[in-house]
Amino acid sequence: MRALTFQGRRKVSVETVPDPVIEQPNDAIIKVTSTAICGSDLHLYEVLGPFLDPGDVLGHETMGVVEEVGPEAGDLKVGDRVVIPFNISCGHCWMCSRGLFAQCETTQNTKTGKGASLFGYTELYGSVPGGQAEYLRVPQAQFGPIKVPDGAPDERYLYLSDILPTAWQAYEFADVPEGGTCAVFGLGPVGQLTARIALNAGRRVIGVDRVPERLDLARSYGVEVVDMGSVDSVPEAILDLTDGRGADGTVDAVGMEAHGSPFAKAAITAVGLLPDAVANPLADKMAIDRMAALVDSIKSVRRGGTVSVSGVYGGEIDPMPMMEMFDRGITMRLGQCHVKRWTDDIQKLLDQDADVLGVESLATHHVPLEDAAGAYEMFQKKQDGCIKVVLKP
């Protein structure tokens, strides 16, 4: 089959690789109909490359049609149309029974000290081949795949794989009260959806970014926007919009590669140029993130408010404004999304006739899988108004 593979820092290519096969009784094989490039994939493209090997298949936002099932794949049947959550969870362990699917103990990566295995996301998370390919092997198929109805466009349900439940969790974790204000930092795909979810829940939303097309898209849905390039201080701008108090909840939808952190960027770049044997321990145990978005999220929330972090971080020695966090009594909630914890509530919206969250129009680019390498570069450099890319095998 053809698949998008990692080849080195800022280098990916579509190659012919072996077709996946059933390896465990609870596996399934799906024929991929749509797969998307996630902002988290760009961390592999840039920062987390030391934890990948050339030839690793990338991608964790995938849907398709079931081609084959193992004897213990539950009620999954050949021909079912399914979306595949990015985290691989069993549904029955101690963690899963508490809705903590991103920490599944059955697929947990104890050797690397990380949570549940993820599709297409480095040796830290199990080195499981990803879904930017023609076919995908799905472990724990008795629980993971989400069945969706036939007929609707793929984009109506594709984002159930990651960014839509991630945005839903980001909003839920922000704990914005009725009549309150939610400030969303980063208006990429997750930030856009977080803002729309908050608006749909009747909250006031302030969105922060520097990319004109992202600001315009958020504004078109009713978001009040702050252009980072036109203000001296984002926290001060948000304080001005909230009677000097700050937002009730803030969402960091950016993560480790935020703009505005030049020294951290230089350190990350230097580590990425080292041989993997040297870079891996440095990136894992001595990592430092570009934290401008997180710090602004902390400084923009009101006293007693909540900071929700959905952006991916990988640092071990990141500096935090602890005195301010303590003095202002803020709460922080963060972590990988527990996808299936939220899917029932989300599907109630997606199954409506109206596209309430605008998911069908979120993708700005639909690209053949064969052209995925160019799409990665375009997305990473924010060229051609790119907000979201869907690949078609």
Rank of each mutant, 00 (worst) to 15 (best):
T33G: 10
S97D: 10
T181I: 15
S361D: 14
K388W: 09
R156T: 09
G311K: 01
T112F: 14
D345P: 04
F379T: 12
D355T: 14
C386I: 13
D19Q: 06
V78K: 15
R81P: 15
L100D: 09
E236W: 05
A277N: 09
M63C: 08
A3Y: 00
G130M: 09
S117G: 12
Y376C: 06
G39E: 02
A277T: 13
A152H: 13
G186M: 05
N26C: 08
A253M: 03
R210A: 13
P54D: 02
G358L: 12
A293V: 05
L217H: 08
A73V: 14
A174P: 07
S220E: 06
G131R: 04
T242R: 01
M1D: 00
K382G: 04
A363N: 05
L100E: 14
N280Y: 05
T35S: 14
M1S: 05
L241H: 00
I22S: 00
R204W: 01
D80I: 11
Q336F: 12
G180E: 00
D27N: 06
T112D: 00
R203P: 00
V307A: 03
R10L: 09
V14R: 00
Y313K: 00
Q383M: 14
I197G: 00
G91N: 09
L164H: 11
P275I: 07
Q380T: 15
R210S: 12
L217M: 13
D327K: 10
V307E: 00
T112P: 06
C93L: 10
Y159K: 06
A293S: 15
D175P: 07
G55N: 05
T106M: 13
L48D: 10
G186A: 02
R303N: 09
K340T: 12
T106I: 14
L217W: 09
E224P: 03
